[in-house]
Amino acid sequence: MPSINTAKVALVIGASRGIGRQIAIDLAKEGYAVVVAAKSTTTEPELARLSPFPPDPNSPQSTITTVAREITLAGGEATAIPVDTTNYSSIQQLAYSRLDVLVYNSGAIWWGPVATTPMKRFQLMQRVNVEGLYGAVQEALPHLKEEGASGREGDRRRRIIVVCPPIYSRFFRGKTAYAVGKVGMSVLVKGLGMDFAREGVVEKGLAIGGLWPAVAIESAATGQFTRKDPSFARDLRKPTIFSDAVLALLKAPAAVVNGQLELDEDFLRKQVGVTDFSKYAVVPGSEPRRIMPVELPDLTVKEQDDEGMRADSSKL
């Protein structure tokens, strides 16, 4: 693990390829010591035989070992630690000397209706997606709640960033089993954000936010479509747009981020002022199709502040 004296430490879970790899690399460029975590690793003999290096970032050859090596070769600080997010004891082995940022990008996917989603697939998605996130948050919270010298946000901005979608009904269609877990992750973002607000830690720099792509991103998951139809690449963006949005979430005030479910393009537009997204297109000159709604529902109700009698089972 990075030294406790390191200025800033970020843990990226699900960082072996695609979006997670890009986030880890860009956090290192921002001065973070990065803990690169996922299941896949590369042995030293295998690493020596890899050609070219770095490997295709969306291929099985891209692992936490290769990502950490990419970072260190570029002058950054990185540590690769294997983790199985279906196993809480594995998550508990991610011991922290200090933690400023947790990015949870680990995910299992099975797109299909309930009738064609086997129980084993459903269980795997819940364990990797929502249970893995919950375990990671439980372990990280004590370290993230450690304050800076004066307890002001400027001393130490701490963030939990979850790759999860905004909540709206169309998302459930045709992939209900997958949506159960992903929206469960979004509920955690909303609920923990409310806890943070009530505890008064947002003013001290701690926040949780969700982030999701507005346009499909080049990855191992979308690669199955481009292999069948190469023209599909015209509807893809590079993972750098998502990583740029993550950095923007880190730099934004905690109150702006906390409990919010953001889309990468929309957050960059409103928070950073980006208007030209052409550099993110996988195919130069193309205009990738937006897959997310332009307007999303407001989840609040008129009785939002009327909680009735709140109960805490841990104190009953």
Results as ranks from 00 to 15, higher is better:
124 L>P: 10
187 V>M: 15
191 G>P: 05
170 R>W: 06
136 A>D: 07
188 L>V: 05
198 R>Y: 10
176 T>F: 12
199 E>Y: 11
148 G>V: 04
146 E>K: 15
170 R>Y: 10
144 L>I: 09
166 P>R: 02
184 G>I: 02
157 R>F: 08
177 A>G: 09
148 G>T: 04
168 Y>A: 06
180 V>F: 10
170 R>P: 01
179 A>M: 09
148 G>L: 03
194 M>A: 13
179 A>Y: 03
139 E>Y: 15
141 L>S: 11
192 L>D: 03
214 A>E: 08
138 Q>V: 14
173 R>H: 15
125 M>L: 08
166 P>G: 01
123 Q>W: 13
160 I>C: 05
167 I>T: 06
151 G>C: 10
211 L>E: 01
209 G>P: 08
170 R>I: 06
214 A>P: 01
142 P>T: 09
169 S>D: 14
173 R>M: 13
123 Q>L: 14
141 L>T: 12
188 L>P: 00
128 V>C: 12
159 R>S: 06
190 K>E: 13
188 L>Y: 00
140 A>I: 11
203 E>P: 01
181 G>E: 01
214 A>M: 08
163 V>N: 07
141 L>F: 13
205 G>W: 00
129 N>F: 03
212 W>M: 00
172 F>C: 11
191 G>T: 14
147 E>A: 11
169 S>M: 13
207 A>M: 08
206 L>S: 02
198 R>T: 11
208 I>P: 02
126 Q>K: 11
183 V>K: 05
135 G>P: 09
163 V>M: 12
213 P>A: 07
156 R>L: 12
153 E>D: 08
196 F>S: 04
179 A>G: 10
134 Y>A: 15
146 E>Q: 15
212 W>G: 00
175 K>M: 14
150 S>L: 14
125 M>W: 03
204 K>T: 04
129 N>G: 05
152 R>I: 13
198 R>C: 07
138 Q>E: 15
164 C>P: 02
200 G>D: 03
140 A>F: 09
125 M>K: 02
165 P>Y: 00
158 R>T: 10
152 R>V: 14
213 P>W: 03
166 P>C: 01
193 G>I: 01
182 K>S: 12
161 I>T: 09
152 R>H: 13
195 D>T: 12
148 G>C: 07
149 A>T: 09
201 V>L: 08
212 W>I: 00
155 D>T: 04
128 V>F: 10
142 P>Q: 10
205 G>T: 04
130 V>I: 15
196 F>D: 05
147 E>R: 11
180 V>N: 05
186 S>M: 08
181 G>V: 06
173 R>F: 12
198 R>G: 09
211 L>M: 09
188 L>N: 00
208 I>C: 06
173 R>Q: 15
199 E>L: 14
189 V>F: 07
147 E>H: 07
181 G>F: 01
209 G>E: 07
172 F>A: 14
197 A>V: 06
174 G>K: 11
149 A>F: 08
130 V>N: 04
186 S>F: 06
203 E>T: 10
205 G>N: 03
171 F>C: 03
144 L>K: 04
133 L>M: 13
156 R>H: 10
150 S>A: 14
187 V>A: 15
176 T>K: 06
143 H>S: 12
158 R>I: 01
172 F>E: 08
185 M>R: 07
133 L>H: 10
147 E>W: 06
128 V>G: 07
149 A>M: 08
194 M>S: 12
